[in-house]
Design a protein around this nucleic acid. Sequence first.
DNA 1: ATAAAAGAGGACATGGTTGTCCGGTTTTGG
DNA 2: CCAAAACCGGACAACCATGTCCTCTTTTAT
Lengths: 149, 149
Amino acid sequence: MLSQTVEYALRAATYLASVEGESRTVDQIAAATRVPVAYLAKVMRPLVRGKIVASRRGVRGGFALSRSPERLRILEIVQAVDPIQRITHCPLGLAAHGKRLCPLHKRLDNALAAMEEAFAATTLAEVLSEPTRSVPLCDFPAVPACRRH
Amino acid sequence: MLSQTVEYALRAATYLASVEGESRTVDQIAAATRVPVAYLAKVMRPLVRGKIVASRRGVRGGFALSRSPERLRILEIVQAVDPIQRITHCPLGLAAHGKRLCPLHKRLDNALAAMEEAFAATTLAEVLSEPTRSVPLCDFPAVPACRRH
DNA sequence: ATAAAAGAGGACATGGTTGTCCGGTTTTGG
DNA sequence: CCAAAACCGGACAACCATGTCCTCTTTTAT
């Protein structure tokens, strides 16, 4: 239902939020979030293009959130990586209705809207500061920051 | 986001609802709903297994809704054909939290729940008797019933 | 200047979804 | 009983999502 890509992107973003704007390499993010490194590298690209994260190449490079977690809604991450396709016209393609959705597809679009709404309702900051005592992304052990140097 | 399979199943069910419990062959349903015949045949099988529709083989056979549209929620069709996988435990697989969902996945599951809720909120009958003047499944022309005989 | 670190991007493998096809089985009408 | 109608089920093709790998480019430290 939700793609792996979305899952991975959200894990990465949550992790980057948890280190408070600091920069982390793909390897660090992958290790922390249990995502295949090589694939995560691909997932990060649309996040960069979508200005969710900023990337820096070269030594001491990596990825960092480009906005504060308070201003980053989960929906933005989803849309950057695997956009929710709202139904804007009848997939049957008959022009007779003009732009009006038929009842069935109106309902389907409502369902998509509900999901979109759920994603729009939460910021990354809220995920981090959940009222519960649990740690985001389960309690994967604190990941060492840059150990070199 | 929503699979083709779900889309097709819902079209088929809506069509069968629109003919008031009468039986229709795969070919008739496919023509009415603009779905590839051979694939629709596959989609119908889980609907049969899920008791959404009943099938009859042989001459004058076909598919018919096994319940009245008032009692058929869209969600049931979705679940029969391509079940919404709710998130019941952290996909990171760490046992430390026990059965508790981490904040991120709680939110994701909320989104899935919202979608599930939207599907559960509507019956096929409601799709057919939409307050708007539009015809379900767009206005594909009335499909002739069994012309033989 | 050079070497190492790290992201960017493309080529390729794998698996699941979508879609086609065909033979088998059940049912009905004559 | 026989033939036609129709669903059942499995084999196979095409395509996209997922995942791996390798090379290129950028950047920094020495």
